[in-house]
């Protein structure tokens, strides 16, 4: 136990007196930045794809759109996110001759990646609403668009929002691989502290705790949200 308190001391020295905490804060900011922006981009892309996939076929969207969406989702769900990051940073960007900072590359890749998952979340959320609801709305003379907006989508949101919260949690956790392309996240900050204090036990333990606290906080918020959304299902 004596050695552990020594390790703690050494960690604190680097963390506090040598300004390691600043790197941790930067890492934390980058993690949240990538996860939040990634989710926002993901929701935008996911919504567009879900619209293409849910619209009835007689709405005469070009068939090709459907194919594009399918292959997009297949591509991004079929490869690990580390591979996507590496390919984007070391293959795609040099090929098209664009130079972007690694943080922005991460945001884009995480956005594209979560877009594929979010589109599935939204599609299944809308599909899980009883088709009779749409029929009933159409039968009283509302148009397809209005029926969706007023009846189907409000019910689908109830299924979608909690799952989106979970997607956000997944994103937060997955950001721990962005150091592969040189973005500074929590892992980079704590391994810096580890290298400078010559011991890794405490820094990585603290890193794990930070992730755990973040995820639990978000999970709590998701649960609160879910509860307030279930209001109309509850018997009073």
């Amino acid at each position: 136990m004596g050695s552990f308190s020594k390790k703690l001391e050494r960690f604190w020295e680097v963390f506090y007196e040598y300004n390691g905490y600043q790197r941790v804060l930067t890492g934390l900011r980058n993690t949240v930045y990538i996860a939040v922006l990634g989710l926002v981009i993901g929701i935008i892309i996911g919504t567009l794809i879900a619209i293409v996939e849910v619209l009835p076929k007689y709405k005469r969207l070009p068939r090709i759109l459907n194919g594009i969406c399918r292959s997009y989702v297949g591509l991004f769900r079929g490869t690990p996110i580390v591979v996507q990051l590496l390919v984007a940073y070391y293959v795609v960007l040099p090929l098209i001759g664009v130079n972007l900072p690694s943080l922005q590359v991460c945001v884009i890749v995480f956005g594209l990646n979560s877009g594929a998952y979010v589109s599935e979340i939204m599609r299944s959320g809308i599909m899980s609403v009883d088709p009779g609801q749409l029929e009933a709305a159409r039968a009283v003379g509302l148009s397809y668009r209005v029926s969706m907006m007023k009846v189907v989508i409000p019910q689908a949101v109830k299924n979608i929002l909690p799952t989106l919260g979970n997607e956000f949690i997944v994103l937060i956790k997955e950001t721990s691989v962005v150091s592969f392309v040189g973005a500074a996240d929590l892992y980079v900050a704590f391994s810096y502290i580890g290298t400078n204090s010559y011991e890794f036990m405490v820094p990585y333990l603290v890193m794990a705790l930070i992730y755990l606290v973040m995820v639990m906080a978000i999970a709590f918020l998701v649960r609160m949200m879910e509860r307030s959304l279930r209001k109309s299902d509850r018997r009073n």
Partner: peptide, 21 residues
């Protein structure tokens, strides 16, 4: 069709009341 459906009421086997209203 939406204009004509206004004048035809429809009642379903499964009621299909809007659950969110």
């Amino acid at each position: 069709i939406n204009i004509h459906r206004r004048h035809m009421g429809m009642v379903f086997q499964q009621f299909n009341l809007f659950n969110n209203k």
